[in-house]
Design a protein around this nucleic acid. Structure first.
Lengths: 153, 153
DNA sequence: AATATTAAGTCAATAACATTGACATAAAGC
DNA sequence: GCTTTATGTCAATGTTATTGACTTAATATT
């Protein structure tokens, strides 16, 4: 790798860092008003987009321990954002869904990001979004896959 | 925003989350072997790429409090990775630089990311990298700028 | 020269969070 | 019946973040 390439890649490392921080900025601010943190957003996001997710699946996708998930998940249930019911087939596992207020909060948080990103992609030229998605998909696939994620649409 | 667009943007939110996690994965593993964390990498990265950075500038770019930076920075100095000398013009401020071993560790950490990203960009088609950089630059610029960052090369 | 300001370093109290290990319950599977 | 699985919880410990305060040294202001 020559110096010129290395320098370009360094620029890319900085961009990734700052871009991700911008990406999490607005939701973090909204969460703070509710005295919640980023982990709560992640829970709301994945439960919202994969309703009926079990606790174990949520642990797998977030890559955290059961004990680490316990507190924020319990808070979301107690605050009435997340609902938790035994599965019919296997009543040991519990299916997570969002309540109406949970849907509303998740929408508020993710809308901030969707509107933001939509604006950026619209301002960029044709094909830019496809290219970005291609790169980020390649990066995402370089990690252990979680089965149900392929249902994402 | 129609449902189809919203669905595409949801996919993008997931990609951003997982791609960033892949991005930080290898450095995190290397850091763990040294009993260090991501904040140490950030310090090493910015000190390495902006030698002579002052403590205040580092605080600004990382957006953390002086007290939060204190411990990890002190550790890096005590471990001999970072050097800390009074500035000539204004001897109150102290200029941070990497030692030789600090350079080596920073290189090890960032190389993991550079090699990884270089591979992804190479595998993607022509123009893909430029598009990715365009999007991430736009995102990065949507946040308070830190003066010296424009020197980035 | 005296005073104020700035940069940096540190300490202490508190709160928040993660980690490990253990244990309990209920439901399924064998 | 015995074992395994999914979940929930607790406690102890360690780590990290946050807030506020204070100190030192150097520089700027008046």
């Amino acid at each position: 790798m020559d110096d010129r390439r290395k320098s370009q890649l360094n620029k890319i490392l900085v961009l990734f860092y700052f871009a991700y921080r911008t990406f999490t900025d607005k939701p973090d601010q909204i969460l703070a008003k509710h005295h919640l943190q980023r982990v709560h957003h992640r829970i709301l996001f994945f439960v919202g987009h994969f309703p009926g997710l079990t606790v174990n699946q949520l642990l797998a996708v977030l890559e955290v321990s059961k004990q680490a998930l316990h507190k924020p998940l319990k808070q979301l249930v107690e605050l009435g954002f997340v609902h938790n019911a035994p599965a019919e087939r296997d009543r040991r596992s519990r299916l997570l869904t969002l309540t109406d207020t949970g849907e509303a909060l998740e929408k508020e948080l993710s809308d901030a990001q969707r509107v933001f990103l939509d604006q950026i992609f619209t301002e960029a030229g044709t094909g830019t979004e496809e290219a970005w998605v291609q790169i980020m998909s390649a990066l995402s696939q370089k990690r252990p896959a979680v089965g149900f994620l392929k249902d994402l649409q």
